[in-house]
Design a protein around this nucleic acid. Structure first.
Lengths: 209, 209, 209, 209
DNA sequence: TATGAATGAGCATTCATTCAT
DNA sequence: CATGAATGAATGCTCATTCAT
């Protein structure tokens, strides 16, 4: 029984090890130029081993996206659970949560958009697809709850909470992508915090009464 | 000379023909699943012919991005050149310009982010890379000019115009990507116009005095 | 038009070239140990070229089987069309036809039995599968016609012609396989003709009145 | 010593267990599509354990063939040992023995022909190869003995007994294969007994005076 | 003895690119 | 200029086999 458990945990650790390696390699080479062999080398494992833990390359990539969505979800739930925070403070907490997600792995966010290709979806197990869908929807919902509270308390202007949440999400992913494109154009990451700050400030100004 | 010119124009036409086909195929299959043969078929040309007009696949893709940036640039220049527009009206015109870009080709915008992979950049001619850089910077600059004018005329709050322009760009690309990810999650495009509207409204509210 | 035709013929030639190489390699190494690269080398082509002419390895193998069935079918049709032959003479002609098939390609007959694996069938185009089925059934039917004529003319004992045809086919494929297994055990092919003769003699003795 | 013996017997049991599982899996998937892991699962053992009892996959397969040859040999010896049977009755007994072999495992007979691939032979231990050879030859010899007796007693026509035995073997393996190919073509096993009967009847008619 | 996770060589297949016509 | 057949390097994935426990 204890043995069973330890094995489960060991298996989880291996998956983590592979995902960390994959993250590094995807970040470095991009999803398509990264080969399974690259990832195996990075993880100091053999290619075959990767397939013991992930059905195929697409599923490995999608699992990375799932991981970051889980991370975000926990953060958002935590913000929402703090009952004595003012709406404005919650917006601030929200901002910080999203910072953390971004810092946790800025580049993998880009890779999340590989999920969009319906071609890739064919290779994923239905379970994984539905998990990702559920978490995405949940994240929007958690954010919307924050806005709803603010509107009820008459602190935010009267907008559909879901629309607000989606706008924030747009702002966020847009900022992430902008940073990414900066890399190409300027190779200069200095303004990241500054510009993310700017985005949120303007956004908050737009929703607050 | 006249012949020379006609040939040049003819060559330009062919390039257009190929890029239109490429756009269609990339939209349909995504950049990576689209093969050069697919594009050749779509263009009713042979694969070999594509290489008479584009050095390689990456360059064909980058040329598409360049094209859309050119389109955006022209639109932005046009907005800026209308001297009698009020700042608030220019924001509105800006919004419409970006709509048009989006409608011109929503999916190719996603593909623009393939340029981020530094691996891909190796395959591009320096000329093309510098063209893209120049146009990107120019677009930001054009937008910044609009904001600067608004700040000077004391209509917009006092923010760095460049930061504003980048925020708008974030908002925009974020909205595009969000629409894209909606496709996966909901397969429902009804809210596109609505949410883009929402984004811009909030953004404008944030910058206007 | 002439060009179109010549190209068609050229394409057919290429297919032949590949099939001849495949036959050689399959004979030498067996179906599973033979790699597509082996076949490409033997055909003095590159691996990719093989896939221009055959969908996959299974289809290449099945095409070989189809070819030999076509050969057999023509031979059988020819025997049947000779109107003035006595039934006993037709049996003799039948024997010789089957000799020829055997000599045409003794080893590929073995490979025909790879088609039995229902797993392999999944990789074949429906057209090819139905072609093979049709030719197999046709071969049995042609043989049965010969027997039917003999029974009608009161030269052969009264047995179901189809059963006779299938028995002959059993005898034939059994002999082929037996020769094959001899290779393992004795590596001695001297008795081939003799034993095939023996089989047919006994068979013929059994069916003749 | 008693312990030694028990261990030996235990070891034999394990081998049987594995071979039974292998037979099931080979029958289901065919030799090449069946993986060692499939067999291990079927045997409710781990893959590694298989290699404690069989040197490699080819040897496991060959051992199955050996087993069926042993079974046939015992049957044939038994027929031959019945001194008071008439030659015609012995032919009948022979027929039944071969039925039993067929029913014991129709599909594994097909797999026997994998031994033909000279590539596979390289992986077998010389001992196993020579065992198989010996048993094959022995089976032919046992059958030949039956025919020889019939010829001596002037009941059968005067043919080389070995040739007769080999013809019978051809007929038999042919019938087996024919049934197999029927599966592909008709998916209809109803006629098995009937056609095997037919084969033997014609064969017997051919050899009897 | 039994395990089963890990291996890594091997292979079918793809596709960007070339070049003889 | 245009073609499209041919290329062959590259890669995802498999699976027989091993070995530390």
């Amino acid at each position: 029984m204890g043995i069973q458990e330890r094995k489960e945990r060991e298996k989880g650790r291996r998956r983590q090890q592979i995902m960390i390696a994959a993250k590094r390699v995807f970040s470095l080479k991009g999803f398509n130029k990264a080969t399974m062999e690259d990832i195996a080398n990075e993880a100091e494992l053999s290619p075959g081993t990767l397939y013991l833990y992930f059905k195929n390359k697409d599923e490995l990539c999608a699992s990375l996206s799932l991981r970051i969505l889980q991370y975000l979800n926990i953060k958002l739930k935590h913000v929402n659970s703090e009952k004595d925070l003012e709406p404005r403070q919650k917006i601030k907490a929200l901002k910080e949560a999203m910072y953390n997600v971004y810092e946790f792995d800025p580049l993998i966010l880009i890779n999340m958009f590989h999920l969009q290709s319906s071609e890739s979806l064919k290779n994923l197990s239905p379970q994984l697809v539905s998990d990702i869908r559920e978490l995405s929807n949940n994240s929007i919902k958690e954010m919307a709850d924050i806005f709803e509270e603010g509107i009820k308390k008459n602190v935010f202007i009267d907008k559909k909470p879901v629309a607000l949440a989606e706008t924030l999400w747009a702002l966020f992913s847009g900022a992430v992508l902008r940073e990414e494109s900066k890399r190409v154009i300027k190779n200069d990451k200095n303004y990241l915090k500054l510009t993310l700050e700017g985005d949120f400030e303007i956004f908050a100004r737009g929703i607050k009464k």
